[in-house]
Write a protein that binds this DNA or RNA. Structure first.
Lengths: 194, 194
DNA sequence: AAATTACGTCAGGTTCGTTGACTCACTTGG
DNA sequence: CCAAGTGAGTCAACGAACCTGACGTAATTT
């Protein structure tokens, strides 16, 4: 198959680090080349995000399909599992979808007995969401699939790489998402103090 | 506001590495703890993938909406731009969607003059897809948005982290996606030789 | 008491993915 | 050379998962 672009790239590995610096234009030719490389780096990152996300989410699809659920259900299960007692509005803010989209998903998850609601303690308008034992079991099954993939990748890449992965991923996301991670898992905030 | 992150990281890299090894159970207590940490690591990675992908793809949405296009159109533009002259079936394999899904997207992109077709040279049944100048311009506009985000993340994280990021992302995706990257950008395959 | 908030829900709409079947043009293998 | 296979386009129908806007209810805040 095509996928043209055979031309091998003879550039030296040293390029990787220098790409990240503003590059004060040492020489015109080198500067232009580095600019090109920088762009190529970024475009490759687009590819990486697309493929990694696609295949990562894909990992759980088999199980979901068996049960007639979709990825939206998985995402809800994941975040409820990780934040037991989360309110509906907080979950909405995390997922960044509308109330109606979430409602459809939650309705199914509650009908199937994977998610339970409880009335808020301080504020009785709130519905605190938790996974039932059966919901926990399902979430774990889904998790295991993704875990395999991730663990294999982590092992191959090594600890230093994993740390770099985390730092870059944190850098890509919004401030609010970073804040969530810090709140949720303070240990992760090691990455902040780069 | 958050977006902490300054510079040097004082933590001993050894800690991160130990999480990734099978851990031959030194002491029960330590073993259990490490097991917990390992799971927490993986769950955090799920979060990272979700948030980073969400916000990364989001970056281009404003422009797309202006033009009445969606993310599917962006993905097609991206891969055609990166693989000028790609055939329809190769594009299908990359995107992993059905012919009909792609057709809907491609029809619009051609009607709007962003994508052009040419007859295959060796096989005249093929339609080789390329971006028109206007398509290149649009792709670039979209790219710039994502580039900002990515470049900021890369700069913050540093070259070593970026390398780690690439290695982990590569590890997460399918063999076929890795093969594509190697074919497409051989320099990236540095990451293979751990 | 009035305004606001948390949640649920109704009604209708879009995007983007799916399957299956069929045509047309072209290439290829016996 | 012709039959079989392949690359691409297209029709019809469907489904998942998002969207907006509006409205109701209960509980809380001002």
């Amino acid at each position: 198959m095509p996928d043209q672009k055979g031309s091998a790239d003879p550039r030296p590995p040293a390029a990787a680090v220098s790409l990240l610096e503003p590059q004060k234009e040492a020489r015109p030719a080198a500067g232009a080349n580095l600019l090109f490389l920088r762009e190529e780096e970024i475009r490759t990152a687009q590819d990486l995000l697309f493929f990694a996300y696609r295949d990562f989410t894909n990992a759980a699809d088999v199980i979901l399909e068996e049960l007639g659920l979709g990825r939206a259900h998985h995402r809800a299960l994941h975040f409820i599992g990780r934040n037991p007692g989360i309110t509906v509005s907080d979950l909405l803010a995390l997922l960044r979808i509308t109330k109606q989209s979430l409602a459809r998903v939650l309705t199914v998850l509650m009908e199937e007995g994977y998610v339970a609601q409880a009335q808020g303690h301080s504020d009785r308008r709130q519905r605190l969401l938790t996974l039932t034992p059966s919901g926990q079991a399902l979430e774990r099954r889904l998790f295991e699939r993704q875990r395999e993939r991730l663990l294999a990748a982590y092992r191959e890449a090594g600890g230093v790489a994993v740390d770099g992965f985390r730092r870059v991923m944190r850098g890509i996301m919004d401030d609010s998402a970073r804040a969530y991670l810090d709140r949720h898992d303070p240990a992760e905030s090691r990455a902040r103090r780069a």
